[in-house]
Design a protein around this nucleic acid. Sequence first.
DNA 1: CGTCTATTTGAATGTACTCAAAAGCGGTGG
DNA 2: CCACCGCTTTTGAGTACATTCAAATAGACG
Lengths: 201, 201
Amino acid sequence: MPPAIPSVSPDLLLTNIARHVLLTPAEAATVAAALRPRHLRRRQFAVQAGEVCQYESFVVRGCLRAFYTDVNGFEHNVLFAIEDWWIADLASYLTQTPATLDVEALEDCELLQLDRAALEALYEQVPKLERYFRLMLQNAFVAQQQRALQSISLPAEARYRQFRAKYPQLEQRLPQRHVASYLGITPEFLSKVRKQVLQES
Amino acid sequence: MPPAIPSVSPDLLLTNIARHVLLTPAEAATVAAALRPRHLRRRQFAVQAGEVCQYESFVVRGCLRAFYTDVNGFEHNVLFAIEDWWIADLASYLTQTPATLDVEALEDCELLQLDRAALEALYEQVPKLERYFRLMLQNAFVAQQQRALQSISLPAEARYRQFRAKYPQLEQRLPQRHVASYLGITPEFLSKVRKQVLQES
DNA sequence: CGTCTATTTGAATGTACTCAAAAGCGGTGG
DNA sequence: CCACCGCTTTTGAGTACATTCAAATAGACG
C-alpha cells in the first residue's frame, strides 16, 4: 500500500521559501511536516474577527480576502491572496489578540496552515526560517504603508489604474464590488470610474 | 578629570527596553555603547526621502514628524514621535532601500540613533534584543493597520475625536496644520471640525 | 427557465476641497 | 512698549469628488 499522500502538496510553498533562503532536504521535510493542509469551500472563513487568528495560511489553490467590518456594518477589503501568497490577520496572529479582520474564501481553496506554536518550534529546528518570516513581515509592512500612502494621495481613478497595473490577474478573478471595497469606494462609483478608464484605453 | 559624559543619556531608552526584556548591567552597557547621540535643531531632518534611512531614532527630548510628499507636492504626516518613542522610515531602514518618507524635527531634539550594522551586531551580542525590536515592529505594524482602517471607515470629525482621545499630549504640542495633515484633511476643514467638536464638549 | 445577485445608470445629496480674505498670534526691532 | 512682519488659524462662498437611493439591466447558478 502506498504511503498516505497529504491532500495538499507543500511543493509550491517550498519553492516560495527557496526564493528567499536555502533549505536542506531534511529542513524542507521538517517544514512540510509542520504544515497543516486545509480545504476551504467558497464562503467559508479562515479567520473570524473577534477570535485570535490561529494560523497563517499559504494559498496553494484558490482566492481569499481579508476584510474589516466597520461600526456601521460596512465591509472594507484590506488584502487579497491567491496561489503562492500568505494570508492572515497578521496583527492578531503575531500578538495573539482578537482579530479585527475576517478572512473569507472567495473560491474553493487549498491551504497550508501554520499555527503560532508550530512556527515557534520551527524557528528552533530551522533557524533560517526566522529570516524568511521576517522578510514576510517586512513585505507586509511595506505593502501596507504604500497602500495607505496611495489611498490618501491619489483620487479613486488613479487608485484603480494602479490596482489594474499591479494585480492584473486579480482583477479578472474578483467581483467588482470587492475591488471597489479594496479601493475604498462604492461599487456604483467604481462602475462609473471604469467607464472612463476602459474607453480611454 | 571626570569621564566624558555623553551628551544624551541612554537612561530613558534603557527603561523603555526594561519594560519588554530584562537586561543585565553588562548588556545594558553594550546597548548604551551602540547608540549614537544626536542633537537636531528645529526644521532639521533625521531622514530624507530618496536616501536610505540609516538610523532608527529614539527620542530623548523633542518632537518630530514623518511625512510623505505626494506627486503634487502635498505633504501627508504619517507619524509623530515625542520623548520615549522611536521614529524612522522603517520600511527603508529594514530593507535598506530609498526612503519614501522624510523625518523632520518640529522642536530641538535629542536623539539616540542606531544604525543597521550596529543593530545586527547588537543582535549577536544581546540576542534578547531581537525580541524587543520584533515587538517594536509588531507595534508599528498594528498601529499602521489600525490607522488605515480608521481612515477608511470614519469621517473626519470622528478621526479628530479619536486623535484627541489617543494623543492628548500631542495635540497641545503640534500646530493644527500638522494635525490636519495627519488626519488627511485640509487645515481649513480641521478648523471647521474643531469649531463643532469644541463647542459640544 | 427563473431567481438571485452583481453591475450599470441617473438624480439628488454630502463631505471635504479650493481659493480668497480677514483675524489672531508671536516674535523682533525701533 | 508698541508697531510691524510673517505665519497660522478662521471664516465664507463656490466647487468637486464621491455617496446614497432608486430603478433598470445584465449575469450566474441551481
